[in-house]
Simulated scan of single mutants.
Amino acid sequence: MPVYTVHAPPVDGTDMRSTTDKFVFVRDGFSFWAFVFGPVWLLYQRLWLAFAGYIVLSVAVEVVLTLLHAGGGVRFAVMAVIVMLMGLEAASLRRWTLSRRKWRQLGVVIADDKEAAERRFFDRWTTMRGVDFDPSTVDRGAPPPTRNVLGQPPPLPRSDIVGLFPQPGFPR
Rank of each mutant, 00 (worst) to 15 (best):
R158I: 09
R75H: 13
V78E: 04
A90Q: 06
V109W: 05
R158T: 12
G141A: 12
P10G: 01
N148Y: 12
S31N: 11
V59G: 06
L65E: 10
L65P: 04
A116G: 13
V6L: 03
P9F: 00
F165A: 05
G72H: 06
D28W: 03
R17N: 07
T126G: 00
T146L: 02
L156G: 00
G38F: 03
W48I: 03
P2Y: 04
L65Y: 02
V59T: 13
M86T: 11
I82G: 01
W33F: 04
V6W: 00
T97Y: 05
E118D: 08
Y44A: 13
V36G: 09
P168Q: 06
R158Q: 08
D112A: 13
R95S: 09
M16P: 11
P9V: 01
R140D: 11
F32L: 12
G71I: 07
Q105V: 00
V11T: 11
Q152A: 15
L65H: 08
R75G: 11
V61Y: 07
R75F: 14
G151N: 14
L49V: 03
A90R: 12
S18E: 06
P153Q: 12
G107C: 07
V78C: 04
V162E: 04
V40Q: 04
F30T: 09
D134N: 14
F76A: 14
T146D: 04
M84P: 04
A91G: 13
H7W: 13
P144V: 07
G130M: 05
F133H: 07
T97K: 08
R129C: 02
R147T: 11
E115G: 08
L156P: 01
P145Y: 05
M128T: 01
I161Q: 13
K102M: 12
V78R: 13
M86K: 01
K102E: 09
G130N: 13
G72I: 09
E62Y: 09
F133L: 13
K102F: 08
P157K: 08
D160Q: 05
L43S: 09
R172K: 14
A142M: 12
A142D: 08
P144N: 10
L98V: 05
A117Q: 01
L57Q: 02
S58L: 08
K102S: 10
G13Q: 03
K22N: 06
G141R: 13
I55M: 14
V108N: 10
V81G: 15
L49I: 12
T19A: 14
F32W: 15
F35I: 05
A70I: 12
F170S: 00
A8E: 01
S92Y: 05
D28S: 08
D123S: 15
D15R: 11
V56N: 07
